[in-house]
């Protein structure tokens, strides 16, 4: 009887151990049409992690836009925790000979302007508008988000509707 109990216990263990785990797939890519509406400004990546005092590069993407000739991306952040180190031009308007590019960071507001020079150019599709390098100064998570002042303009300076404005997080550990 002792053997029977031992064998039964062993078999129960074997059967329980046979339960297979399922993989945890995450579909959170902001450039995935299933996650983000067309005509949007998003951060890539949406979540960045660095050491305290370290820097992270966050790209600003125009997602599935049409006839865009100028972009104003206004980003709000907690300037007690983050500082803007540098902002560089992305490749979205790279086919233009010399796109206009201006940025200004002041009191937790970063304004980025980029646009075709002249009135005969526009851009469709998805692409990086600019790359922002943030520097962390306090530990913890800091949200970054586009404000309602952000806008897209066509070659006639007409306003293009923005359907979604993305958000992001920078974590300093």
């Amino acid at each position: 009887m002792r053997w029977t109990k031992t064998i039964l216990a062993s078999l129960t263990f074997v059967f329980l151990a046979c339960e297979l785990p399922e993989p945890e797939a995450i579909y959170d890519n902001p450039l995935d049409g299933g996650n983000t509406s067309s005509s949007a400004l998003v951060f890539v990546p949406e979540q960045s992690v660095t050491n305290l005092g370290g820097s992270v590069a966050v790209e600003v993407y125009a997602f599935e836009v049409t006839g865009v000739a100028g972009i104003h991306a206004q980003i709000q952040y907690d300037n007690t925790k983050l500082g803007v180190s540098t902002v560089s031009l992305g490749s979205f308007f790279s086919d233009a000979q010399a796109p206009g590019f201006v940025w200004e960071a002041n009191n937790g507001i970063l304004d980025i302007y980029t646009f075709y020079m002249g009135s005969d150019g526009s851009k469709d599709g998805t692409g990086p508008v600019a790359t922002v390098v943030f520097t962390t100064s306090l530990p913890g998570n800091t949200n970054i988000e586009f404000t309602a002042q952000s806008e897209l303009r066509d070659s006639t300076d007409g306003l293009i509707q923005l359907n979604e404005l993305g958000t992001g997080t920078v974590s300093a550990q």
Partner: peptide, 10 residues
């Protein structure tokens, strides 16, 4: 899934 999350190519 790792490739999907890392990709920036639409």
């Amino acid at each position: 899934n790792a490739q999907y999350r890392a990709s920036v190519d639409p």
